[in-house]
Simulated assay, not measured.
Amino acid sequence: MRDNPTHIRAFGADPVRRERTLRRIFTPFLQRQLEGGRILGAFAGPRLVGVAALAAPGGCQPTLADRGRALPVLLANGPVSALRMRAWVRVWARRDAGMPTHWHLGPLAVAPEWQGQGVGSRLLSQLCDHLDRQRGLGYLETDLPENVRLYRRFGFETLASEPVIGVTHWFMQRQPDG
């Protein structure tokens, strides 16, 4: 995810800085998802090569505590980065608020050297199985056209697309199967 267009736009050109920023933002969010959502990891021996998560209904928006922890991280990247992240989160929150009760997919990420080898598909398949067992509506956002194609293979349909901080985002949902 470090090299996703939105992350480059929001956090700048330095890949080390982007990765550090994403780790600091996602770690508390994923810890919270462990409580009520679902997180899967793909491993090659002891190495984590992929991760996929679902936030349970009502658990996908950042809490006040999440925002408080993220603010110093964002400000460390400068005010432009913080303002871009604010604009980005506002669009996502507006779209999310219009969805009925749903399971929110994200993040789904695979180490670059493992992409294209089925890791993401296996993780996504397991998440979709969980959605089906729960009879849950799945929802996600992506900024990569190749991800749109991947998600469509698993039954996600594009609801809308719009620019977010200058990068096109697709908003997708999946009805439970069966």
Rank of each mutant, 00 (worst) to 15 (best):
residue 46 P to N: 12
residue 46 P to E: 14
residue 46 P to D: 14
residue 48 L to A: 06
residue 48 L to H: 10
residue 48 L to D: 08
residue 49 V to Y: 07
residue 49 V to W: 06
residue 50 G to S: 05
residue 51 V to G: 01
residue 51 V to R: 01
residue 52 A to D: 00
residue 54 L to P: 01
residue 55 A to T: 13
residue 55 A to Q: 12
residue 56 A to P: 15
residue 56 A to Q: 10
residue 56 A to R: 06
residue 57 P to Y: 04
residue 58 G to C: 12
residue 58 G to I: 14
residue 59 G to T: 13
residue 60 C to K: 07
residue 60 C to E: 12
residue 61 Q to V: 03
residue 62 P to N: 10
residue 62 P to C: 11
residue 62 P to K: 10
residue 63 T to K: 11
residue 64 L to S: 12
residue 65 A to Q: 14
residue 65 A to W: 10
residue 65 A to C: 05
residue 67 R to Y: 09
residue 69 R to W: 09
residue 69 R to Y: 06
residue 70 A to D: 10
residue 70 A to C: 11
residue 71 L to V: 13
residue 73 V to M: 08
residue 74 L to D: 07
residue 74 L to I: 11
residue 74 L to F: 09
residue 75 L to H: 06
residue 76 A to K: 15
residue 76 A to R: 15
residue 76 A to Q: 14
residue 77 N to W: 01
residue 77 N to I: 02
residue 77 N to A: 10
residue 78 G to E: 07
residue 78 G to Q: 06
residue 79 P to W: 15
residue 79 P to A: 15
residue 80 V to K: 07
residue 80 V to A: 13
residue 81 S to N: 06
residue 81 S to T: 13
residue 81 S to Y: 07
residue 83 L to D: 06
residue 84 R to G: 01
residue 86 R to S: 07
residue 86 R to C: 06
residue 87 A to G: 08
residue 88 W to F: 14
residue 88 W to L: 15
residue 90 R to S: 07
residue 90 R to H: 05
residue 90 R to T: 12
residue 91 V to R: 01
residue 91 V to N: 00
residue 92 W to C: 07
residue 92 W to N: 10
residue 93 A to I: 08
residue 93 A to S: 13
residue 94 R to G: 09
residue 94 R to K: 08
residue 94 R to V: 04
residue 94 R to M: 04
residue 96 D to P: 01
residue 97 A to F: 11
residue 97 A to V: 09
residue 98 G to M: 09
residue 99 M to K: 07
residue 100 P to D: 15
residue 100 P to A: 15
residue 100 P to V: 14
residue 101 T to M: 11
residue 101 T to L: 13
residue 102 H to E: 12
residue 103 W to V: 02
residue 104 H to A: 05
residue 104 H to V: 04
residue 104 H to R: 14
residue 105 L to D: 00
residue 105 L to Q: 02
residue 105 L to V: 01
residue 106 G to L: 09
residue 106 G to F: 03
residue 107 P to A: 01
residue 107 P to Q: 02
residue 107 P to V: 01
residue 108 L to E: 03
residue 109 A to F: 04
residue 110 V to K: 05
residue 110 V to H: 02
residue 110 V to E: 03
residue 111 A to Y: 11
residue 112 P to T: 03
residue 112 P to V: 01
residue 113 E to S: 05
residue 113 E to H: 15
residue 114 W to C: 05
residue 114 W to A: 08
residue 114 W to T: 04
residue 115 Q to K: 00
residue 115 Q to P: 02
residue 115 Q to F: 03
residue 115 Q to I: 03
residue 115 Q to M: 02
residue 116 G to H: 06
residue 116 G to K: 09
residue 118 G to R: 00
residue 119 V to W: 05
residue 119 V to K: 02
residue 119 V to S: 00
residue 119 V to R: 05
residue 121 S to L: 04
residue 121 S to G: 14
residue 121 S to D: 06
residue 121 S to R: 03
residue 123 L to S: 04
residue 124 L to N: 05
residue 125 S to C: 13
